[in-house]
Each structure stands twice: as structure tokens, then as C-alpha cells.
């Protein structure tokens, strides 16, 4: 089996999270921001799976179940988010986030 210490998985997840965060903060296209959010969610999932694998009692399945539920929630989030983006695009002809800020006070 894998002889990789837990710390490498956590560092990898932290890097993935930072990449996602950087994308969500710097990109202006709403779809790319959504991609960044998905990457952050996936980084959290990787952490959950790694902790589950290295936990003293993996038969409890806590981290594993969290990932299953998180995957399903992420699917719902992506579907609604992309439907919103497409719907906004129909009205305003843009997917840039600045073009969607007309409700700002």
C-alpha cells in the first residue's frame, strides 16, 4: 500500500485549495470562478479522505460519508450555478462578474 505520510496529502490539498482560491479571486469570468470554487471543494474532499484513511478507526466511515455527501452537494451546486450563469448571459450577454453587479447598493 501507499507509504506516503499524511502530511504530503494535507500539503497537496492545501496547494489545490490555494489554486482554487487564487482562481476565484483573480478571474473575472463567472464560470472560471465556479471552477475555482469546485477546486476548493475538491481539496477539502481530499483532506477528508486522507484523514479517513489515516484515522485509527476507519470502519466508522465518517470522513468517507462526508465526501460522498459533499460530492452530491457539489453536483447540485454546479448545476444551479451554471444554470444561473447561462440565464444571466441570456439577459445581459456577458459572463463577466462586473456585468452582473447591477443590484449592488
Amino acid at each position: 500500500m501507499s507509504g506516503t505520510p499524511l502530511v504530503y496529502y494535507l500539503l497537496l490539498a492545501a496547494l489545490l485549495f490555494s489554486i482554487g482560491l487564487g482562481a476565484a479571486l483573480t478571474r473575472r469570468n463567472a464560470i472560471l470562478v465556479l471552477i475555482g470554487i469546485e477546486l476548493m471543494l475538491n481539496a477539502a474532499n481530499l483532506n477528508f479522505i486522507a484523514f479517513w484513511r489515516y484515522s485509527p478507526n476507519p470502519e466508522a466511515l465518517s470522513g468517507f460519508m462526508f465526501v460522498l455527501f459533499s460530492i452530491a452537494v457539489a453536483a447540485a451546486e454546479a448545476a444551479v450555478g451554471l444554470a444561473l450563469i447561462v440565464s444571466i448571459y441570456r439577459h445581459r450577454r456577458t459572463t463577466r462578474l462586473e456585468g452582473m453587479s447591477s443590484l449592488k447598493g
Binding site: A78, L82, I85, V86, Y89, R93, T95, R96
Partner: peptide, 12 residues
Amino acid sequence: LIVFALLLTRNA
């Protein structure tokens, strides 16, 4: 889904 969204908002 992302591919579809990209193609539907291609001109943006």
C-alpha cells in the same frame, strides 16, 4: 456541464 455552459456563453 461546464463544457455546455462554455459553449452556450461562447461570445462573452
